[in-house]
């Protein structure tokens, strides 16, 4: 039995990924979360002095708050089973990763448990966010300084 046959057996044993259904579910669940976000944005713009540009911050915070309630009650896990990336990509998924890790390690204490494990899953997102922001800003500033592009 060579490598090819072995790979074929593995492929047969593994269930086929239902690409289309997964994508459709991700589209619908992700779309619904963003629509709720848009409704929250409208709410903040209507009743508070926020414009389209500034309403994004309280919207994100509110969504993370909703994610906290859903995570604590175990509902977010059910949404994630249906939505896949549709529930992971919106900021609620980021909130869910942080909050669930915090709840999970509560028993080890607030410093070592909650504080130490909170960013176990979300840490890479922050790392790459900050790193890529730095690199992109650096490259663009250099390009502007040597006159290739403008702001």
């Amino acid at each position: 039995m060579d490598q090819k046959q072995f790979q074929k057996i593995i492929d047969d044993k593994n269930p086929k990924v239902p690409y289309f259904m997964n994508i459709l579910k991700a589209f619908i669940v992700g779309g619904i979360i963003c629509t709720i976000g848009q409704l929250i944005t409208f709410f903040y713009m209507r009743f508070f002095p926020f414009t389209e540009g500034t309403a994004a911050n309280p919207t994100v915070a509110t969504l993370v708050f909703i994610a906290m309630v859903l995570t604590g009650t175990g509902l977010y896990k059910k949404i994630a089973q249906i939505g896949g990336a549709g529930s992971a990509v919106p900021v609620t998924g980021f909130g869910n990763a942080v909050i669930s890790a915090a709840i999970e390690h509560k028993s080890e204490g607030y410093v070592l448990g909650v504080g130490g494990n909170m960013f176990k899953l979300a840490g890479s997102v922050i790392l790459f966010g900050v790193l890529s922001a730095f690199v992109v800003a650096l490259i663009k500033t250099i390009l502007v300084n040597i006159g290739v592009v403008s702001w």
Binding site: A56, N57, A61, T71, G72, F94, A102, I103, Y110
Partner: peptide, 17 residues
């Protein structure tokens, strides 16, 4: 705001749930 909200609500969540 995403990060600060996640930290804040993470701690509150750990406290409540």
């Amino acid at each position: 705001s995403g990060i600060s909200a996640a930290i804040l609500f993470g701690v509150i969540g750990a406290f409540i749930f």
